[in-house]
Design a protein around this nucleic acid. Structure first.
Lengths: 348, 348
DNA sequence: TTGTAGGCGTTATCAT
DNA sequence: ATGATAACGCCTACAA
C-alpha cells in the first residue's frame, strides 16, 4: 500500500520549501545544484505522482473544443458521431471542457471551407475533424499548427504531422476481412466482384484501399479467383438497376459481391429476383443496410464504428486539456463483423 | 457559451452565504423556507453543475477497490482481464483510487471462499468480482451489502440486488449469432451439433443459455434442422478424440458444430482428417483457438471481450468513488464475430 | 536562489 | 438558521 506524497511532504523531506520542489518538478531553473539533486533523488525514490485533481483545479481554465464533421442530414453515416460527441461532451464539461459541433456538407468543398473558417474564427484550444477533402484539410491543419490549435482527426487520415492523433480503421485489412467472409460463404465459387457505389465526394482512396485488401486476400489463396471491379456512380435507382443488370449479364458466374461503400442496400434493391442469390458484403450500420440484413439480402456488414471514432477523438483531446494526458498518435479500431443477429448491440 | 457558476456566484445572487447554498445542495436542512426556495430556483435556472474537481480535491479520500477474479494461470481466458484492470488502475490512481487484484482457482469453491475472505478482511470501499459460484457468491454479496461495500460483477450475473452493476454479454443472443453463422456457412445442410466441452467448474447455466439461443435461431427458420447435443467433460485428448469419433460415427450427417465453451480447439484437434471438413464455431480469443482460426480448423469465434468487461467494472466503481458518477446497472457488450482476418485488432 | 502567501471551488467546522 | 473561515494539493507571484 503506497502512501500518496504531496509537494509539502517532499519539501519537508528535502529540507526545503514547496516552491523549490515545484521549480524542480517543472524545470523552471533557479535552483541550486545541491537542492536540485536532493529533490530529484527523492522524487525518483517515492515515484512522485502529482495530484491531477489539484493541478486541474488550480489551472481552473475552461477549454474550447470544436468538432467539424459532415452533416448527418446529408449522409446518415455520420449520425452516430453526434451521439459519441454528446457522450464525451457530458463527461468532460464537469472538467471544464466545452464542446461545440460544426457540420459541413460532405459533397461540397466550399461548405467545408466555410465551416472551417468559422471554426478558426472561434479560436478554439482544440479541433477534432474529419479531413474528407485532402487539399483543403491540409491548409486547415497548417493554419491550426500556426495558431497552436491541437488537432485530432478521425475516419480519414491525413498525411500531415500537424495533427496529433488519428482514429480510424485499417481499410486494407477490412477489405481482407470482407474477402475472408465471401470466401467462407462461397467455398467452391471462383467469380467475385468489387463494386464501388455512389460516391459523390472524395473517398476514392478509401475504396481503393478496401479493394486492394480484398484482392490481396484472394491472391494469398492457392485456388485462383477471378475478381471483377465495377463502378456505379449513379444515384438513380433505375440507372443503378440497369448498371447491375448489365454487369451480371456480362459476368453471369459472379456469385459474391463486395460493396466498398455504405450503399450496399442500393445494390441489394437493384438485384434481380432470381433464386440463386448473390452473396453480399458491405459497410456500415445505416438503417437501409440493416433492413437488408434482416431480409437476408445482405449477408455481412463491416462496422466502422463512427460513434466510437468521434467519441475517442473528443475524449483524447479533452483528457489532454483537462489532465495533461498524452494523446495517442494512432488508434485503429477493430473491424467489427455484423450479421442480422448481432447488430443491435452495436447500435448502443 | 455557458458560464460556469460556482457556489460563491449563487450565494451572491441569492444574497446569502456559501454555507447556506451548500446546505441546500446537500439537503442538510437548517435552512429557512425563504432561502431554500430562492436558492433552489436559482440552481434550476442556471442548471448548476458542481465542479467535480474541486469536490474531489476537498474530499481528498483514497478509495480501496479490490478485484476478485479467476487465476489466468488456471484458465487463460482470464488473462486479458488483468490488462483491463491495469489500464483502469493507471487511469484512476491519479484520482485517489487504489486497485488490487485477488486471484482464485476457478475449479475450486474453497479457493474462492478463501480469497473472498481475504478481500473482506481488507475492508475495501468497493469490490469488482466474477460470481462463478452461485451460492458462495450470494453469501459474499450479502456480507458486502451489510458492510456497505459497493459491488460490481462481470462475466457472470448473479440474481441479487446487492450488486450495483453487471457487465457481460447476452448469452442467449450469442447462441443465436452462432446459429446464424453456421447457417450461412452451411446453407443446404440440416444436421448440426452443440458440444459442451471440458467445463470443470460451474458455468453449466452459461452453456445452456447459449444452446437455447442456438436452437432458438433454427426454430425460427422455415426449414427444420436436426440439432444434437453432445457433452465432453474429459480433459484428456485421447478420450476426447474417442468421444468425438463416437458421436461422428453415430451422426455422420453432422456438418457443423457449435462449441459453447472456449475449448473449441480441443474439438478441432480431435477431428479426423477427412476432406469433408466440419464447420466449427466457438468462443474466446485464446491462443490455441487463434491457431485454429489461422489453420482453418475453426471458422468463427465469438469474442466475449473479458478485457473490456474487467476494465468497465473497475472504471464504473472508480468513477463512482472519484466523481460521484452513477453506476450503470447493466452493460451488455456487443457480440463480436471473429475470423482469421480480424482477430488481431481485438487483442489490442 | 529561496520562502511565503494567497487562491482555485467545495466542504466541514465553528461561532454567531 | 446563517455566515465566516480553514483546508484539500498545486501553482504563481512576490518578497526576501
Amino acid at each position: 500500500m503506497k502512501k500518496k506524497y504531496t509537494i509539502a511532504d517532499i519539501a519537508t523531506m528535502a529540507g526545503v520549501s514547496k516552491g523549490t520542489v515545484d521549480r524542480v518538478i517543472h524545470k523552471r531553473g533557479k535552483v541550486s545544484k545541491k537542492a536540485h539533486e536532493k529533490i530529484t533523488k527523492i522524487l525518483k525514490e517515492i515515484d512522485y505522482q502529482p495530484n491531477l485533481v489539484a493541478r486541474n483545479l488550480k489551472k481552473n481554465k475552461t477549454y474550447r473544443l470544436l468538432v467539424l464533421i459532415p452533416d448527418p442530414e446529408k449522409d446518415p453515416y455520420w449520425a452516430p458521431c453526434l451521439e459519441g460527441i454528446n457522450t464525451a461532451s457530458q463527461e468532460f464539461q464537469a472538467f471544464g471542457v466545452m464542446i461545440e459541433t460544426f457540420l459541413f456538407d460532405p459533397s461540397s468543398t466550399r461548405s467545408f471551407n466555410a465551416r472551417s473558417k468559422e471554426v478558426l474564427k472561434n479560436k478554439p484550444d482544440g479541433v477534432v475533424f474529419v479531413p474528407l477533402f485532402y487539399k483543403e484539410s491540409l491548409t486547415f491543419t497548417e493554419y491550426c499548427k500556426k495558431n497552436s490549435i491541437t488537432l485530432a482527426t478521425f475516419n480519414s487520415s491525413i498525411n500531415s504531422n500537424n495533427a496529433r492523433s488519428f482514429i480510424g480503421q485499417d481499410l486494407h485489412k477490412s477489405g481482407r476481412v470482407a474477402g475472408g467472409l465471401l470466401h467462407m460463404l462461397l467455398p467452391g465459387k471462383k467469380h467475385l466482384a468489387v463494386v464501388h457505389m455512389d460516391e459523390i465526394y472524395q473517398n476514392a482512396i478509401h475504396m481503393q484501399e478496401k479493394e486492394k485488401g480484398f484482392r490481396d486476400y484472394f491472391d494469398g489463396l492457392e485456388q485462383k479467383h477471378q475478381i471483377i471491379t465495377h463502378k456505379i456512380p449513379e444515384k438513380d435507382i433505375r440507372k443503378i438497376r440497369k448498371s447491375v443488370r448489365g454487369f451480371l449479364e456480362t459476368y453471369p458466374e459472379v456469385s459474391g459481391v463486395f460493396v466498398t461503400t455504405s450503399k450496399a442496400y442500393l445494390l441489394a434493391e437493384a438485384l434481380p429476383e432470381t433464386d440463386t442469390r448473390i452473396r453480399l458484403v458491405g459497410y456500415d450500420l445505416i438503417e437501409k443496410n440493416l433492413e437488408c440484413l434482416d431480409s437476408g439480402h445482405i449477408d455481412f456488414l463491416i462496422h466502422q464504428n463512427p460513434r466510437q471514432q468521434a467519441y475517442l477523438g473528443v475524449s483524447y483531446l479533452s483528457e489532454y486539456f483537462a489532465f495533461d494526458k498524452k494523446i495517442p498518435d494512432n488508434k485503429l479500431l477493430p473491424i467489427d463483423i455484423i450479421t442480422a443477429e448481432n447488430y443491435t448491440h452495436y447500435l448502443e
